[in-house]
Amino acid sequence: PDFTLHWNGITIHFKGIDEEQFRHLRELLDRGVSLEELEELAKELIK
């Protein structure tokens, strides 16, 4: 499924991740993950 997340004025689209992965990403963003960390995470998910 696809998810869209609005965070700090940025709209991020996640394609092909499951709800569990999306929930994990939201928790990280709510905790204050940096954009660099988010990019690293995205690379991991894409593999």
Rank of each mutant, 00 (worst) to 15 (best):
residue 4 T to R: 08
residue 13 H to Q: 14
residue 8 N to A: 11
residue 40 E to A: 10
residue 8 N to D: 10
residue 5 L to Q: 00
residue 42 A to F: 15
residue 12 I to P: 00
residue 3 F to Q: 03
residue 1 P to L: 14
residue 47 K to Y: 14
residue 9 G to P: 00
residue 41 L to G: 01
residue 38 L to I: 15
residue 16 G to D: 13
residue 19 E to W: 10
residue 38 L to E: 00
residue 16 G to S: 05
residue 5 L to S: 00
residue 7 W to D: 03
residue 30 D to F: 12
residue 15 K to D: 14
residue 19 E to A: 13
residue 26 R to T: 10
residue 12 I to L: 12
residue 20 E to C: 06
residue 41 L to W: 15
residue 15 K to A: 13
residue 33 V to Q: 03
residue 8 N to T: 01
residue 43 K to W: 08
residue 20 E to N: 12
residue 40 E to R: 08
residue 28 L to E: 07
residue 7 W to A: 12
residue 16 G to Q: 07
residue 1 P to Q: 14
residue 4 T to D: 06
residue 30 D to G: 12
residue 46 I to K: 02
residue 15 K to I: 15
residue 34 S to W: 04
residue 32 G to N: 06
residue 29 L to R: 04
residue 10 I to K: 12
residue 3 F to Y: 12
residue 36 E to M: 08
residue 39 E to H: 09
residue 6 H to G: 05
residue 30 D to E: 12
residue 25 L to C: 03
residue 37 E to A: 09
residue 44 E to Q: 04
residue 40 E to H: 05
residue 41 L to S: 02
residue 3 F to E: 01
residue 40 E to K: 09
residue 2 D to L: 13
residue 4 T to Y: 14
residue 22 F to M: 10
residue 46 I to Y: 06
residue 36 E to C: 02
residue 19 E to D: 14
residue 1 P to G: 13
residue 34 S to H: 04
residue 3 F to H: 06
residue 29 L to C: 07
residue 41 L to A: 08
residue 25 L to H: 00
residue 9 G to R: 01
residue 35 L to R: 06
residue 6 H to D: 09
residue 2 D to F: 12
residue 33 V to A: 14
residue 17 I to A: 03
residue 33 V to S: 10
residue 28 L to G: 03
residue 3 F to R: 04
residue 18 D to H: 08
residue 9 G to H: 05
residue 22 F to I: 09
residue 45 L to N: 02
residue 41 L to Q: 04
residue 24 H to K: 12
residue 43 K to I: 10
residue 14 F to E: 00
residue 22 F to Y: 10
residue 2 D to Y: 13
residue 11 T to F: 07
residue 27 E to W: 10
residue 17 I to N: 02
residue 24 H to M: 14
residue 15 K to W: 14
residue 8 N to P: 02
residue 5 L to P: 00
residue 36 E to K: 12
residue 11 T to M: 09
residue 21 Q to V: 14
residue 7 W to F: 13
residue 36 E to G: 08
residue 18 D to A: 07
residue 12 I to A: 04
residue 15 K to M: 14
residue 38 L to R: 00
residue 18 D to W: 04
residue 35 L to S: 04
residue 41 L to E: 04
residue 10 I to Y: 07
residue 9 G to M: 02
residue 38 L to C: 01
residue 14 F to W: 05
residue 1 P to Y: 14
residue 19 E to K: 09
residue 14 F to M: 03
residue 45 L to E: 03
residue 17 I to E: 02
residue 6 H to S: 14
residue 20 E to G: 11
residue 35 L to C: 03
residue 28 L to D: 01
residue 35 L to K: 06
residue 17 I to F: 06
residue 15 K to H: 13
residue 27 E to H: 10
residue 22 F to K: 06
residue 12 I to M: 08
residue 7 W to Q: 10
